[in-house]
Design a protein around this nucleic acid. Structure first.
Lengths: 154, 154
DNA sequence: TTGTATTTAATGTAATTACATTTAATTTTA
DNA sequence: TAAAATTAAATGTAATTACATTAAATACAA
């Protein structure tokens, strides 16, 4: 039930290339699960992530740029993601008083409510991973961090 | 330089939710790097993966369905990906003699040549990860496999 | 100050993806 | 066998993403 079986690929040129494929595959696997969870709420994974980022600000506004820095997928267009959330009346967009180039984005009560609902489903889903144990999960976080960090130390 | 710093998020509700975010983030991080590597070759990451899958067949054709099963991102449309590769004259598409519903796809010498070129760049890039050591990379593969597998054993 | 460079966000667009539907071929079942 | 169900791939479409460009505001430098 490892990556080899999942992708029906018996051998990889190296352990490193296997790890690369495994990391991409695992990331996609999670995103696809989350996509399913979020479908009933009418949210895409990216919209959900932006909402969570805004909630993390405890009621304080964030500029679009600040949101971008915190997004899991830096490539997608925060400006248009915010558009969608404004359409759904989950967030508020207003000119930033300190810097009129910037735009402040603020989560609305409706957005917080929706997140609360999603949290229920999300928590149940996440419970599966508790079976691994905190120690093993810490190892996973450690090793993924190492994997990215080894790049800077070249 | 861990995930907390990368996403400027000081705390996570649990180690599991941190691992979920970390896995998605790491996967995206790799994909974005690969995107950059592939840009000069005019290939998307998905197209590159399909080409590698076809190369793995050692000259044998594969149906579109078989390709889909081996793709890292199951969501994308193998039929249209193959279209693009046919346009670029990197693969050949022909009716499968055994089953006329199916379509055989075969990598062409031009496709193999292109992959050889990409391999050069890709190998250099992948070398960064060798610094982790084979043992650590094996641990990473092991733990990612566990992470996905724990789901089936609920 | 004034012109230049930089920063921030929005927008235009082409390509890709998500999702549902369609078409054609094969398999199953009555 | 004929009808129904299933399978494989392609297609239509709406939404999203990738990438470049634009517009506006601010910072900087001459």
């Amino acid at each position: 039930m490892g990556i080899s079986e999942d992708l029906k690929q018996s051998k990889f040129p190296s352990e490193a290339s296997k790890a690369v494929v495994n990391a991409i595959y695992t990331g996609n696997w999670i995103v696809q699960q989350q996509q399913e969870l979020l479908k009933p709420f009418g949210l895409t994974v990216q919209q959900y992530n932006v909402l969570r980022i805004l909630r993390g600000q405890q009621g304080n506004p964030m500029t679009v740029l600040a949101i971008t820095e915190r997004m899991l997928d830096k490539m997608s267009n925060a400006s248009r993601l915010v558009d969608k959330l404004v359409e759904k009346k989950l967030v508020l967009r207003r000119e930033c008083p300190q810097d009129r180039r910037a735009v402040d984005v603020l989560i609305l009560p409706a957005g917080l409510d929706l997140l609360t609902q999603v949290d229920q489903v999300q928590n149940d889903w996440g419970k599966h991973f508790d079976a691994l144990g905190v120690k093993r999960l810490e190892e996973m976080n450690q090793i993924l961090d190492e994997f990215r960090t080894v790049f800077s130390h070249n």
